[in-house]
């Protein structure tokens, strides 16, 4: 699955860059994120639980950053394990451009692969889920980087976050940078388990 797309964020590029490298901010923005730790300058580990319908799924992920070119972009690669629910991995090239009006255009091209039960049962749902979660993430991200930090655990994952006016999806892709992409996987796991077990 290849995804690409872009978002326009009202924050300056440096702020966006810093946010994308700040585990505290990321943790608040990734729906259902329980743990996000920077293990080195270029590595994160994440634990994310996501509730969709009656189901909660836990996901463990590892993210590595390469080709760092602050504040222009990076390449982010990662993989996530959801136990019997399956796994996902992939990479994305993220670029940040100034939009000339004080904001930033974030572009990404992501290449991802899902495996196991997720691929078997849920592959056709993943694009849509990823899109929804990307919007959710950037809505929250914009909110967090522009204002006082919101409490870390109040993100209602079952509802779209106050997406909106701040971050506007651009282009037609539903893609997302890797840290968000892992969230998409988690959402997919949740959907799948809900379908399989929550019947």
């Amino acid at each position: 699955m290849n995804l690409s797309g872009e978002y326009r964020l009202p924050q300056p590029r440096q702020t966006v860059w810093n946010g994308l490298n700040d585990p505290l901010i990321l943790r608040q923005c990734i729906p259902g994120c329980e743990e996000l730790a920077k293990t080195s300058d270029t590595e994160f580990t994440a634990k994310v639980g996501l509730k969709i319908g009656p189901m909660t799924a836990k996901f463990t992920g590892k993210v590595t950053l390469t080709d760092l070119d602050p504040p222009n972009g990076y390449k982010i690669a990662g993989e996530g394990q959801g136990g019997v629910a399956g796994f996902g991995k992939g990479s994305a090239v993220v670029t940040l451009e100034e939009d000339g009006a004080g904001g930033t255009i974030l572009k990404y091209t992501a290449d991802s692969q899902v495996g196991g039960k997720m691929a078997q049962l849920g592959s056709r749902l993943i694009d849509a889920t990823a899109k929804k979660l990307a919007d959710e993430f950037f809505g929250k991200f914009t909110e967090v980087v522009s204002g006082p930090a919101a409490p870390a655990n109040d993100s209602p994952a079952t509802e779209p976050a106050a997406a909106g006016p701040a971050a506007t999806p651009a282009g037609d892709g539903g893609g997302l940078p890797q840290s968000v992409w892992i969230v998409a996987l988690i959402a997919a796991v949740g959907v799948v388990l809900w379908m399989v077990l929550g019947k």
Partner: peptide
Amino acid sequence: YDDNGQLRSGSYMD
């Protein structure tokens, strides 16, 4: 199957 050998039609939904 997809190119990575993942089964994409593994239930009565697909």
